[in-house]
Design a binder for these strands. Sequence first.
DNA 1: GTTGAGAATGATAATGATTATCATTACCAA
DNA 2: TTGGTAATGATAATCATTATCATTCTCAAC
Lengths: 145, 145
Amino acid sequence: MSQSLQLKNAGLKSTLPRLKILDLFGSGLECHLSADDIYRKLLESGVDVGIATVYRVLTQFEQAGLLVKRHFEGDKSVFELNQGKHHDHIVCLQCGKVEEFYDEIIETRQKTIAAERGFSVNDHTLSIYADCLKADCPNKRQGIV
Amino acid sequence: MSQSLQLKNAGLKSTLPRLKILDLFGSGLECHLSADDIYRKLLESGVDVGIATVYRVLTQFEQAGLLVKRHFEGDKSVFELNQGKHHDHIVCLQCGKVEEFYDEIIETRQKTIAAERGFSVNDHTLSIYADCLKADCPNKRQGIV
DNA sequence: GTTGAGAATGATAATGATTATCATTACCAA
DNA sequence: TTGGTAATGATAATCATTATCATTCTCAAC
């Protein structure tokens, strides 16, 4: 589906800032960007957008179901493409890389635990903060200290 | 252990704001308070404290290992007594009540998942957002709409 | 293709949570 | 009791995010 059609379906006019922001998420899955990330990337690529527009568009995309907002450690929220299916996250404390996973055992267990305590699960967030053991992990933190 | 001794052990002078803040967490476990909650409670009980002091003391207590900081949904952080052992949370979306739990199956499963993907787990946060089915849940949200 | 109404944008002010500054005050060892 | 130093509290500053509003852009109707 073309991007401008995607926007139309969401009831949003096809404008440059919206198309460019959609572009950033476009191809790559597992892409987690903050408003500020997006603002910077657009300015770098020569798109003269305002930070207010970035926040507005992100909110609209979230409400339209195109994006999902996440809160990892730290102050700012990040957005990712809405893949329609729930998943949790592993965040590398060294390089910031985020990987997604889904585990039926954990999902089921949560419902059981909640039920045992008299709760009906509505939603949940599970974030594992870990050290990425992969060779390509830049281990930025070590360099800074 | 007396509270002023607790402070001394943490290398902190025994002052009125610190004692009063420790008091608020004191007896009740599963007590989750934001800086603003604490500020209000102290003013209500006649302790004339500044909001800056509340933030400072909370940070000191966290660094001293007396408290742990949590980020549930929403913007502000909450603090709870450091019980020394890891646990996760169920938050009632109706009344805001927070219950704590620990589940070995989920813990183990997380380590497995991370290892399979080449990560070494450092920490994690799991928050289940649910509806509290208990009779004493005030169900505040329903009243607001 | 032109046009006009209304939506979208961007500069900037405002907000809410949190942190930094700094003069005044309180704690505690001597 | 007192002096040095840490702690406090009023307030300014910061950071992420949201609201305001005049200007600009989109798109449907001509």
